[in-house]
Design a protein around this nucleic acid. Structure first.
Lengths: 134, 134
DNA sequence: TTAATTGCAAACGGTTTGCCACGTT
DNA sequence: AACGTGGCAAACCGTTTGCAATTAA
């Protein structure tokens, strides 16, 4: 795993990730690509996601709901985790750099980053709820 | 699972959790209690952690490092996730309520909470590193 | 030609669960 | 007596991995 060769599968996984804002799971990527790549295997999806993460071309999101999600947007940004359906939505709040300053004031210079996740309802669950169709 | 009965095992798991700030894993709890409760099983530890979480007597921390950690301190507070050894440390930064206000300004009233984790070195890894004993 | 990549299926590892005996109320 | 709980072991499920065949460079 030192010098990577290109592969159809990896290219396609990356382009799919860049074309969506849905922060997909490995299973969703697999199922989405399966029709156009009938031989694709789930192991290949996982292997390539790992390589792409290692190359810094995607972010892994450990949402806590059991399975990981993957984000083709590698810029630091925050997320909303839907407490109803598990979806992940971007929150376009500027990165709050002062949080790390405050933490450093307490713990010293050993902070290297932070993650901030909001909990609540994604757009679609919120609209369903307000329409009373539970 | 409607009306709980007390049990030796659950009481002990809870008291152990309250006596430590180490945010233990289920496996650590199991191994720590095993000497004094030789018949204890890991399944029982998991079952009781789940019940205690349901009762709101502990917090589950999805650190993202594979296994969950459990926190007997149920007050909202922040954590430092050690990027070297996986340990979890408390960060006594007051809860930043304005973060949710800012998020609500962007997304509307569908935010119900947030979690903020810092990444960096725990106290013990930081001191090892500064002493050059890598 | 050489070494990374793939598909497949088996293995992994943290967590959950079915079963039946036991303990609590 | 009624029913939650415990121990045990098997099942679960997202993810990883060993292997032989394929493919990129």
């Amino acid at each position: 795993m030192t010098r990577f060769k290109r592969s159809r599968q990896r290219d396609r996984i990356m382009s799919l990730l860049c074309s969506t804002k849905s922060h997909p799971t490995a299973a969703w990527i697999y199922e989405t690509l399966k029709p156009e790549m009938p031989d694709l295997s789930l192991g290949t999806v996982y292997r390539n996601l790992k390589i792409l993460a290692f190359q810094g071309k995607l972010q892994v999101l450990h949402s806590g709901s059991g399975f990981d999600r993957f984000d083709g947007d590698t810029r630091p940004h925050y997320h909303l985790l839907c407490t109803r359906c598990g979806a992940v939505e971007d929150v376009d709040l500027p990165v709050q750099t002062e949080l790390e300053q405050k933490a450093k004031a307490l713990l010293g210079q050993r902070i290297s980053g932070h993650r901030l996740d909001f909990f609540g309802l994604c757009a679609s669950c919120a609209s369903e709820q307000s329409h009373g169709k539970n």
